[in-house]
Amino acid sequence: MCRSIKTLREPYASDVTDEDVRAAALQYVRKVSGFRSPSARNAEAFDRAVDAVAVATRALLDDLQLGRLPREHPRA
């Protein structure tokens, strides 16, 4: 199941949509919960978890600093 979660950061992906983030969150919650589709009594908790993971994922992607930091050159 989790193998279908795609890497969503540059350079592996560009123009990541909210749909992409939600799909990854859904796959994660499915894996963790063990439910592909939760029962009616668990649907609300499942949906809240997907929403929370999607928000956390978007925050992570927005906060990541990509690229290399410049190297400090030794002074002669």
Results as ranks from 00 to 15, higher is better:
R48N: 12
S33V: 05
V16K: 01
S39A: 03
A76H: 11
N42T: 01
S4E: 07
L64A: 09
S4V: 11
N42M: 12
V53E: 09
R22H: 14
Y28T: 00
R22G: 11
T57F: 08
F46T: 04
T17D: 14
A45V: 10
V29W: 00
A23S: 14
R75W: 02
L8M: 09
R36K: 00
V55F: 02
R41F: 12
A43W: 04
V53D: 04
D18L: 09
E72M: 07
D20V: 00
L60T: 00
D62H: 06
T17A: 08
V29I: 09
T57V: 01
D62M: 04
D51L: 01
A40Q: 13
V53H: 10
R36T: 15
R41E: 15
E72G: 02
R68C: 04
A52N: 12
D18W: 04
A52D: 13
L61Y: 12
L8Q: 00
E44R: 12
D51P: 03
M1L: 14
N42F: 12
F35N: 15
D63V: 03
A24F: 10
L66V: 01
D20W: 03
I5Q: 08
A59P: 00
R9K: 10
T57L: 09
A52H: 04
L26N: 13
S33E: 03
G67Y: 00
A54C: 00
R75P: 06
K31Y: 15
V16C: 15
Y12S: 14
R41D: 13
A45L: 12
R68Y: 01
D15P: 09
L66Q: 07
V53T: 11
E44Q: 07
R3V: 09
E19H: 04
R48E: 02
S14C: 12
L8V: 08
G67T: 03
R71L: 02
A40E: 10
V53F: 04
L61H: 01
R36S: 14
A23T: 02
R3H: 07
A76S: 09
R9H: 13
A54M: 10
D63P: 00
F35T: 15
T57S: 11
I5H: 05
N42A: 13
Y28A: 05
Q27R: 11
A52C: 01
R22K: 15
A24I: 05
C2H: 09
P74M: 03
R68P: 03
R9Y: 10
S39G: 14
V21C: 12
I5M: 11
L64F: 06
D20S: 11
R3L: 09
A43P: 03
L26D: 10
T7V: 02
V29Y: 03
Q65E: 08
A25G: 11
V21S: 08
D15N: 15
L8W: 08
